[in-house]
Design a protein around this nucleic acid. Structure first.
Lengths: 327, 327
DNA sequence: TTGTACGCGTTATCAA
DNA sequence: TTGATAACGCGTACAA
């Protein structure tokens, strides 16, 4: 019948409906009133031609927006393995979706140059330098940094790491602990803040060593430390996953938690496979996500967005108890 | 000094460099030869003006591509909680990144209309209907379905669910089990296939009930079943997470695994917090991701992509053993 | 090797 | 309420 049919454009629809291009556009966008009858004609023509609506690429060029927000995470498999990351990103996504924005993953290592992003969320603790940064600045793409390094021009969303860590430290001190060791993360803003909080109470706390927020990694790290003679009545961890690893390894070595060893975590995520509730610092993860998304929306709208500092709350569980009489 | 400076365009750069627009374009893209000296002049002018390179929005309109691939997952917090999802998406992302494509999350419920996507990956088992489907078809956006419903025009990536389930069933039968129950997922393609595999060997296997791939959900489901008198010498689960829940709940009730109860999982993911290695069906998760990404690239290139069926391998662990003499 | 001119498919401004 | 026309910023035949 017909020739090699190109995919129809709005101009085709307008022609078929016997209206002008601009009228057709208004019929679809509703940005200005169009008579009922005209709109029906346009939509009917669209249906007949199999027109699927305005081409997003062209619309984006006109609007100067892509509708996409990038989120820089580390390697996906490690970023999302952290149970604290999920409620946060979930909340980000929910707020952005409601605003019609999509969330694009930017795994570390790939520069993602050439993708039009309306804004970028940087949510990788532990990396103080980041390839795409200069390019984003040059392009004027708003940047929202979560618990990250202090970069010029970015909006910050942070958590009271230091206070949370200090609360835990005081809790342990109140329980009589004097010899406290800590499992750390790689150097990063949260790690530095938390260590500072810990040292407000235990200036000489021993560092067991850095390890990923990973159960097995924590087991290995604390196990190796004990093997080389490490001693403490309490171990302060930087995540609940780490803390779970320490609990399991302590038990494997015949220690009782919390009788022989107190263990504290961070985050306040669920560890249903552990039969003891961890003493931890509960972060408002969903609110962190919402605050981040709100900052993104403000920045995209061209407003100035205030930095955010979110409160934490210590939750005392069964993984900490009075210090044993002898070490 | 200068007025309200717009962000510079390539035309500004060309003018500043004293060359034509097309020459400037070539200097940036390198699609046709440009004399060394001219290119230097162009790049110098770009630097002087603070030009950050061709506008991706305009480039996309020209090319008819957005460089973005959508991936439909369920709610993020549940989709990524499944440890089997991560290695898969990680591999997808790796291959797509290498091709210069970004990955956009499409949580369920949001239609993401108006976002220009070059292709979409559908990776939600359990949903047989999906809002955006019609729109994607109308737009001619390639669709790659992972373990999902059979939709017209889509490319499929699937796993030998049925064979894996049958292998586990035969393994249990060989161990003498005759009374086998199964914890299921919500009705979905994988669930139906696996149940069929199970019933090849145990036609009368009792269904404990559907539950999410979640540790606590599995504990509750199997616990309730036992409470109402359920009996079996082996429980076949649809994920390792479910299986871990069954193991923990069995122990909580004083049963020994595998002496009193054999438990089998699916996926082949790590469960380091469990002190027994699960008998399970190992999926090639990374390969599933790569195959999916390859299918996406083929479809974007306009080629026909063959459907893919990935092999599985049963791994016998310590969670299954000979059936106890009496039930 | 460089320049000219047009088109990609919309939305927005302005007049009618 | 509708229509003509100009951007949006860039690629790319085609000509020089």
């Amino acid at each position: 019948m017909s020739g090699p049919t190109r995919t129809p454009t709005m101009a085709d629809v307008a022609a078929a409906a016997g209206v002008s291009l601009s009228t057709a556009s208004l019929a679809f966008s509703g940005n200005k009133p169009v008579s009922e009858e005209t709109r029906d004609r346009v939509l009917a023509a669209a249906g007949a031609l199999g027109y699927a609506g305005p081409n997003p690429l062209a619309r984006n060029l006109r609007r100067g927006r892509s509708g996409v927000v990038g989120v820089a995470v580390g390697r996906l498999s490690t970023a999302f393995r952290d149970p604290a990351a999920l409620p946060m990103l979930d909340a980000v996504s929910e707020v952005l979706d409601a605003a019609g924005l999509g969330l694009l993953l930017m795994p570390h290592g790939d520069e993602h140059a050439g993708l039009p992003l309306d804004a970028v969320i940087y949510d990788i603790c532990g990396c103080e330098t980041w390839g795409p940064y200069d390019d984003l600045v040059a392009r004027g793409v708003p940047l929202v940094v979560v618990e990250g390094p202090a970069w010029a021009g970015a909006t910050y969303v942070d958590v009271e790491h230091r206070r949370g860590a200090a609360d835990v430290a005081r809790h342990l001190h109140d329980l009589g602990h004097r010899r406290v060791a800590t499992l750390t993360l790689d150097s990063s803003h949260p790690q530095r803040e938390r260590e500072a909080g810990l040292r407000e109470v235990f200036p000489d706390a021993e560092v067991i060593g850095p390890c990923d927020s990973d159960l097995v990694a924590a087991q290995l790290a604390v196990g190796a430390w004990w093997d080389r003679g490490g001693e403490a009545t309490a171990v302060v961890c930087q995540s609940d996953v780490q803390a779970a690893g320490v609990v399991l390894e302590a038990r494997r070595r015949g220690m009782d938690v919390p009788a022989d060893l107190s263990v504290a975590g961070f985050d306040g995520v669920a560890t249903p496979w552990l039969d003891v509730e961890l003493t931890t610092v509960v972060q408002p993860l969903a609110e962190k996500g919402r605050a981040t998304a709100r900052a993104v929306l403000s920045r995209i709208a061209g407003e100035v967005a205030d930095d955010v500092l979110l409160p934490v709350r210590m939750r005392v569980g069964g993984s900490t108890g009075p210090a044993p009489s002898t070490v």
